[in-house]
Design a protein around this nucleic acid. Structure first.
Length: 631
RNA sequence: GGCUGCGUGGCGCAACUGUAUAGCGCAUCAGAUUUCGGCUCUGAGGGUUGGGGGUUAGAAUCCCUCCGCGGUCACCA
């Protein structure tokens, strides 16, 4: 309807306004509930054109529109706002259209360009945590929303399966894992630990050894024993120490940190890890075997975590496979003169002209860095999907700079499709106790958290739910649906780019703006419809204010999906769904349904309920949340 | 310090590309319901949208500036 009015006004603007008007100057909003009407046109933009007062302008436009559209029943003017009331027939027809459309709100499947959505992308050296949950839910949901917008979507992740971080876990395991009676080191099988947890354990072990050794080195330095260190390092150290003299605490701490970094660089464990990386890139068989074994453990562990999260992928990329392409790109850039080489053989790109720094692309020893492999991955994808019209990278906002650089470098290499890459940057998840820090053990493990919310769902539902007649399996499924629904909704209802606070208790609340509240409303409608039996015609029903309000909310759904797609924001879908449920609860409370005597009115209300239920299910599915029939 | 993001009632969050009296949940208080699920609904109190300035008929929204809180500026990923 908005579009029809807009088209008419733009079309006839020459006669009506005496000049051509732009489409965007025709602005609509929903009429506020304290005024009468369904649709409001803001007339301020036209005041100057017609040289009349806002009220007169509104009246003139109102009359003009009413003459042209039978759907418009009446209008009223408040200041510069033209409130238009649409007829009962219009609303009933709207309801009918919604009711008869099985894919209401969605564009035709695969009717639009292909978009690749990358999310999750964990490191294979430690288990997933709360932050990953936000990432996964967000990425999955954005992919679903883009699908609903008609895009062909490929869900993907790049697995960071190579790099110095992996070598650290490998080294620590090889060196520090105790041998059992059979002379074996620890494995998931002989310890019963989840593979990702076991590997993560050794990453921590590495860090501890790393720090221990660094401390020992510093202790030596402090005793002026510099045997075995290069003169450069010693010089640096002495420079830092002399700089400390007479400075305040903060500066001193800063310098201490620098000294520590210096010492860390001199540790044997780090040197060995680096050596391991060089060996790995040279495909040393033994190193490769160790690497693939430990990665295998991690994948097994991740697999069960992904299953619990309810996310999936269409295509996986491994950095171990794309980093070589990245290296090729680097040579290509070198020969094109886009990059340059430093004396030690390392390769850089100079972005100072674009207001950024010089950025390392390849280490002096020839091994790849993060950027190298990301460049390779980007190219690889474009090769696999030549018709790609967009790439969404779901990665935390601490990497904003990285992606700015990545896209820019791609452009500099002449790949114009870099413009279609989008970094879906999201904020960190904080705990009430503050920031998550792995060193302080305040990381919330994803597996633990999911188990916990499912457990709470079990407790609450067993207490108050309607579980009679359900098998054990059905109940288990239900607890999962509720627990995960609560968790997902909690993490998705907030605008992605905002840093958010995670309160474990609130996430599984059943009242207020929560997933289970919405699921509950759906279950209730479901049982209502089951009791109602058959539904017939409602054409003769009188359309009341309550009914109309709810149809209006239903009618917004398609534009919500669109907007959510344009802005990559599941939060819009979540908030809409909540609004819908609240409107329904209000409706439910204020009008009788099953005991309504007028059969037409009864059926009208039931049809509305049926479609509310349909839209709830659909919008929750866009968030990756299930809608149980009973709970 | 450079770049970048954020700042909305006690707490957690909304407000589409500027627009009518800034909404919602939690918490607090007061009420409703012989109805289909009391995990529901209605109402009240609580805000000079971090401060100041500017653009506009109109600013939480755009611009400038200051303050506060993050992130980032690694031969880590």
């Amino acid at each position: 309807m908005e579009k029809k009015i807009k088209d008419l006004l733009v079309d006839q603007s020459d006669q009506f306004f005496g000049t051509k008007i732009e489409e965007k100057s025709v602005q609509f909003q929903l009429t506020r509930k304290e005024f009468e009407g369904d649709l409001t046109l803001v007339v301020f933009p036209f005041v100057k054109l017609l040289k009349l007062s806002p009220v007169d302008v509104a009246n003139k436009i109102g009359q003009f529109l009413q003459e042209n559209f039978t759907e418009i029943e009446s209008f009223n003017v408040v200041q510069g706002f033209l409130n238009i009331s649409l007829s009962s027939d219009y609303w009933k027809k709207t309801l009918q259209n919604i009711d008869s459309n099985n894919t209401y709100g969605r564009e035709q499947l695969d009717s639009k360009a292909t978009i690749l959505v990358e999310y999750s992308s964990p490191n294979t050296n430690k288990p997933l945590h709360l932050g990953h949950l936000r990432n996964n839910f967000l990425g999955y949901s954005v992919a679903e929303i883009l699908k609903a917008n008609g895009h062909k979507v490929i869900k993907t992740q790049i697995i960071n399966d190579r790099g110095i971080h992996i070598c650290k876990s490998m080294l620590a395991w090889e060196r520090f894992s105790p041998l059992n009676v059979n002379g074996e080191r620890e494995t998931p099988e002989n310890t019963g630990l989840k593979g990702d947890k076991l590997v993560g354990k050794y990453y921590v072990v590495f860090d501890q050894e790393f720090n221990k050794e660094a401390k020992e080195i510093i202790a030596k330095w402090e005793e002026n024993s510099f045997d075995g260190f290069s003169s450069q390092v010693v010089e640096q150290y002495q420079k830092f120490v002399s700089a400390k003299a007479g400075k305040d605490e903060k500066v001193q701490a800063d310098l201490d940190a620098k000294i520590k970094d210096l010492a860390k660089n001199e540790t044997s464990v780090l040197r060995d890890a680096k050596e391991m990386l060089v060996k790995w890139e040279a495909r040393d068989p033994q190193t490769y075997l160790l690497w693939s074994t430990m990665n295998g453990w991690v994948y097994d562990g991740f697999k069960s975590t992904y299953e619990a999260m309810g996310v999936n992928f269409d295509r996986l990329y491994y950095e171990s496979e794309t980093y070589l392409l990245g290296k090729d790109l680097v040579s290509e850039g070198l020969s094109k003169g886009v990059f340059f080489k430093k004396e030690d053989g390392s390769v850089w790109v100079d972005l100072t002209a674009d207001g950024m720094d010089e950025k390392l692309l390849l280490r002096g020893d020839g091994t790849a860095v993060y950027m190298t492999q990301d460049l390779g991955t980007a190219l690889d994808r474009k090769k696999d999907y030549p018709d790609l019209e967009g790439v969404v990278y779901t990665v935390g906002n601490e990497q904003d700079y990285h992606f700015k650089v990545l896209f820019l470098v791609l452009k500099k290499l002449g790949y114009d499709w870099a413009d279609k890459c989008f970094h879906l940057s999201y904020g960190m998840v904080d705990l009430p106790s503050g920031k998550m820090k792995s060193r302080e053990g305040t990381v919330v493990d994803a597996d633990d958290l999911m188990a916990e919310v499912v457990q709470s769902a079990k407790e609450m539902t067993s207490e108050r739910g309607h579980l009679e007649g359900m098998s054990i399996e059905q109940k288990e499924l239900l607890f999962k649906q509720i627990g995960m629904g609560g968790l997902k909704y909690y993490l998705l209802k907030v605008d992605p780019k905002k840093r958010m606070l995670f309160n474990p208790d609130e996430s599984i609340e059943l009242t207020g703006n929560t997933g289970p509240f919405i699921q509950y409303a759906h279950a209730r409608i479901n049982s209502l419809l089951a009791k109602a039996g058959g539904i017939n015609e409602f054409n003769n029903a009188l359309l009341g204010q309550e009914e109309k309000e709810l149809i209006k909310v239903l009618a917004q759904y398609p534009s919500v999906i669109q907007e959510a797609g344009n802005t990559y924001s599941p939060a819009l879908v979540a908030n809409y769904c909540y609004e819908l449920v609240k409107s329904f609860n209000h409706f439910y409370q204020s009008v009788p349904m099953l005991i309504e005597e007028d059969i037409n009115v009864r059926d009208l209300r039931l049809v509305i309920s049926r479609n509310v239920s349909k839209v709830i299910v659909d919008s929750l599915s866009l968030l990756g949340i299930d809608s149980p029939q009973k709970m």
